[in-house]
Amino acid sequence: MTIAGAVDPVPVPRTMPAGDGRVDLVGLARADVAGALVAAGVADARTAKMRARQLWSWIYNRGVTEFALMTDIAKPMREALERAFVVGRPEVVTAQVSTDGTRKWLLRSGGEEYEMVFIPDHDRGTLCVSSQVGCTLNCRFCHTGTMKLVRNLTAAEIVGQVMLARDSLGEWPSSPDGRLLTNIVMMGMGEPLYNFENVKAALNIVMDGDGLALSKRRITLSTSGVVPMMARAGEEIGVNLAVSLHAVTKEVRDEIVPLNKRYGIQELLSACAAYPGANNARRITFEYVMLRDKNDSDADAEELVRLIQSYRLPAKVNLIPFNPWPGVGYETSTPERIARFSDIIYRAGISAPVRTPRGRDIMAACGQLKSASEKVSRAELDRRAAEKEAAWV
């Protein structure tokens, strides 16, 4: 498996065809919808753009999945659309609700499973979206990182998560007013920048003003530090950036975020400093999981401050109490230690809120996502870890 230089290490079609051969319109750019209509003989070149606009509104603004309900399209055309196309959704394998209101879905498409999570709060509702089945990386504290990489999710499967959440929350037609789902974070299973093209295509649809219409300021893409792709993400997608930093020394970050062996802290922070659009109004978020006696000392906090200041980064730090999972070799920092760490950063004038763990009782918290259907031995996990880490050497 060669990962290091690849943007899309496991290429797949942008949309997943229906089992009966029909094409899924979800995930196609508007021009591609028009092209698909012409290719299927459903519309000619003269009318295809107009038909694509109609379909776009029904699919992304009103959330309709049945062509028969698209009432401003003539019945013969609806029947032709039904024969050639589908408006798909991922299959829901299980849906769980935490005691704190967090929702987690185990989804299936193309025979593989992945997860998404919705986190409600008093002033927002955030959907945590997956970009891969499994994960390219092997962050040692992350449950998802123990999985093998199966494949990239398609644009259809990424957008489909947002649409399925809208279905579940009853948020059609799409409108900014009174939404429960207000924010999206690309922080689910997988490394988004190793599935760049599909993530970009999906987020362009999510941000389209005639469809799902979510502002780029409401979308955050999280990366473990795929340095060569960070500038492209800023230029071509333009959403907020979050970086899974988690350590301030090479020794510790090499251990817990093995990608650091490929792209070190200095290289990563230089890429952050150059990220297009980063400023005091759009700060870069550094995610920092708190691991007891590993990365949580006063000296670590002081070095984190020094690094942010030396690179003149418009930044805030999200401190994440470690969310344990069976078999992991780390412990959560004590509340007192986390509070002290946060205080050191705050006193330097850098925001450092402590994230409240959500959905722990259903394994929906940060770092806990993993398909429940996969149960493997420790020996297999170690083999996978060695295989992934070999890619960075």
Rank of each mutant, 00 (worst) to 15 (best):
F118H: 01
F118M: 03
F118N: 02
I119Y: 04
I119N: 10
I119T: 07
P120K: 03
P120I: 05
P120Q: 05
D121F: 07
D121T: 12
H122V: 15
H122C: 12
H122L: 14
H122R: 15
H122I: 14
D123C: 07
D123A: 11
R124M: 05
R124V: 03
G125A: 07
G125L: 02
G125W: 01
G125D: 02
G125T: 03
T126F: 00
T126C: 01
T126R: 00
T126S: 02
L127W: 00
V129F: 00
V129M: 00
V129K: 00
V129S: 00
V129T: 03
S130R: 07
S130L: 09
Q132W: 06
Q132Y: 08
Q132T: 10
Q132S: 09
V133L: 11
V133H: 09
G134S: 12
C135I: 12
C135Q: 13
C135N: 13
T136V: 15
T136W: 06
L137F: 15
L137T: 13
L137D: 10
N138C: 14
N138W: 12
N138A: 15
N138Q: 14
C139D: 08
C139Q: 05
R140E: 13
R140A: 14
R140P: 05
R140I: 06
R140K: 14
R140L: 14
F141T: 07
F141A: 09
C142D: 12
C142T: 11
C142I: 10
H143A: 14
H143N: 14
T144D: 10
G145P: 09
G145F: 05
T146N: 12
T146L: 14
K148Q: 15
K148F: 11
K148M: 12
K148W: 08
L149V: 12
N152H: 13
N152A: 14
N152C: 15
N152L: 13
N152D: 14
L153K: 10
L153T: 11
T154V: 06
A155R: 09
A156I: 03
A156K: 06
A156G: 15
A156S: 15
E157F: 06
V159S: 09
V159K: 08
V159R: 04
V159Q: 05
Q161G: 04
Q161P: 02
Q161L: 04
Q161N: 08
V162W: 00
V162G: 01
V162M: 01
V162R: 01
M163K: 01
M163I: 01
M163Y: 00
L164G: 02
L164R: 02
A165D: 00
A165W: 00
A165L: 02
A165C: 11
A165N: 01
A165K: 00
R166P: 00
D167A: 06
S168Q: 06
S168E: 07
L169P: 09
L169C: 08
L169N: 09
L169W: 03
G170E: 07
G170Y: 03
G170L: 04
G170F: 03
E171V: 02
W172H: 04
W172M: 04
P173L: 04
P173Y: 01
S174V: 08
S174H: 02
S174Q: 06
S174I: 03
S175D: 15
